[in-house]
Design a binder for these strands. Structure first.
Lengths: 111, 111
DNA sequence: TAAATATATAAAGGTATACTGATGTATTGA
DNA sequence: TCAATACATCAGTATACCTTTATATATTTA
């Protein structure tokens, strides 16, 4: 490994703490569903609640968690609150995760 | 959205359950460290324990979790057990996650 | 056979998290 | 001002999860 690659590896290791924090967002199916539902633009909380078929407090709870990890941005327009994806790369990661999980599972019956 | 794209979207949605199971593996810093430490080939449990500076039962516990999600493969050679990455794509995902998390965090102080 | 090695598992504690039901807050409209 | 709307928060419960300490199992070696 070159000195430059070594530096990169160390930098990567250092970021695993924050990576795990963001990774926790990907550990819940409802949050993944919310993230994907936001991939075509911002939505209001009510819209998400209807689409997800989850209780409003539960959706609020998960949105708060996604906000905490900076994965979504909020925009208030008086009574209505819009949520949107903060960084499109998270969608890409979710897609890769889903593909990988599907492939892994196809070799087995269940996790 | 074309009919084909629509099919893909539905397929993706269906896989979010298993995606969340695998995602849970990415929610713990120690597991991320173990995964990355395996990216250059198989290692024994003892080696991982030394490298991670974690207790042996704790490493076993996390390896068990990674096994459950099929992210690592096991190979026994008598007393010694080797663990290795089951699918290289997981390393790619961890890298992307780490980069994204670092970038998101750089816009803030803390999660 | 006894000790040492490599790994897994069990028990227990403490914290975190998902979820529900109830309530709070702020804004809009009648 | 009163009711309705949109969203957040709180209290409570149940479960899951990380971690430690102790112990079990299997294999090798003396």
């Amino acid at each position: 490994m070159s000195a430059k690659e070594q530096d990169k590896a160390i930098e990567l290791e250092r970021s695993l703490g924050v990576a795990a924090v963001v990774g926790k967002s990907l550990s819940d199916e409802n949050r993944l569903r919310i993230l994907l539902s936001l991939c075509n633009g911002r939505k209001t909380v009510s819209t998400i609640v209807e689409e997800m078929n989850l209780s409003q407090p539960l959706v609020s709870h998960h949105l708060k968690e996604l906000r905490r990890c900076l994965l979504v941005k909020v925009e208030r327009k008086c009574l209505i609150v819009y949520y949107e994806i903060a960084d499109e790369r998270i969608i890409d990661i979710v897609r890769r995760l889903a593909h990988l999980a599907t492939d892994l599972l196809s070799q087995r019956d269940t996790f």
